[in-house]
């Protein structure tokens, strides 16, 4: 059987909000203190459950932003029309308790089948970058020499999540931004959406047996994943995660 072993039952447990970090005006990273965490793989997600004082309950999934071995953390983007994300990004305070269960998902994970050496291509649209922080931190912790490229499409520079951390990446990690809506004066990076030409420029050649992870909104993921297949990536080496799968309003 391929992949991660099926774990036992995932039970809900109380987590205590720790430090809160505003990544952008609409995005917040939340550290969660959990008594019983079995550990996670880079790229997995967890479920959050909120209960209102009238008993109303809402659940959502969020990608884990921290590497295996680090305190559990999620990074949440506030959605205008959202229900859970506005609470998590605006109302939650350190010390508040929420319920979580996880980790969840055994396919959008790195390393894949213990292969930490294939060239790694990460393509993010917006808050699709969250699982890639976990992956890149994990790569660094492992001391892996795997060459890694992160192609990150954001609306503008202030919308880039984890910018300081990404800009400081080294040891074989290249971070390539493309800004789709607004570029600062003197911007010498890429502009516009990820298209075939940009993928061709940034992606590892298929002959190098790369493995690709694509995360973002559906249209972004559709277009990037098709583009990579067009460049000769076998579909089995292109893993996708869409906001439909990790976020929701």
């Amino acid at each position: 059987m391929a992949g991660t072993a099926v774990r036992g039952r995932l039970t809900w447990q109380v987590a205590t909000a720790g430090s809160l970090t505003d990544e952008t005006v609409a995005v917040r990273t939340i550290e969660l203190g959990v008594a019983d965490w079995a550990g996670h793989s880079a790229g997995q997600h967890l479920d959050v459950r909120l209960t209102a004082d009238d008993g109303y309950v809402a659940e959502r999934s969020y990608s884990l932003a921290s590497a295996p071995g680090e305190p559990v953390a999620i990074t949440v983007e506030r959605l205008e029309d959202g229900e859970v994300s506005p609470y998590l990004t605006e109302d939650l305070r350190p010390g508040d308790e929420i319920e979580i269960r996880g980790p969840i998902g055994g396919y959008f994970v790195w390393p894949w089948q213990d292969d930490a050496t294939s060239p790694l291509l990460l393509v993010a649209g917006g808050s699709g970058v969250v699982p890639f922080r976990s992956i890149l931190r994990h790569r660094a912790e492992l001391g892996a020499k795997t060459p890694a490229r992160l192609l990150y499409s954001a609306k503008s520079l202030p919308d880039v999540i984890y910018r300081a951390e990404l800009d400081a990446m080294h040891d074989g990690v290249e971070v390539i931004y493309t800004l789709t809506r607004q570029q600062p004066p003197g911007w010498t990076g890429h502009s516009g959406r990820v298209n075939e030409a940009l993928l061709r420029e940034v992606a590892w050649a298929s002959g190098q047996q790369p493995i690709a992870y694509v995360c973002g909104p559906t249209a972004f993921v559709e277009s990037v994943a098709s583009g990579l297949v067009g460049l000769g990536y076998p579909p089995s080496r292109v893993k996708t995660e869409r906001f439909g799968g990790v976020g929701g309003p």
């Binding site: 809900w12 109380v14 459950r49 909120l50 209960t51 209102a52 004082d53 009238d54 109303y56 309950v57 809402a58 959202g82 229900e83 859970v84 506005p86 609470y87 109302d91 939650l92 508040d96 308790e97 929420i98 319920e99 309003p249």
Partner: peptide, 14 residues
Amino acid sequence: MSSPISRGFHRRHR
């Protein structure tokens, strides 16, 4: 285990 109440959280999509 009773679920902790998140004050300020409420249904928005009636």
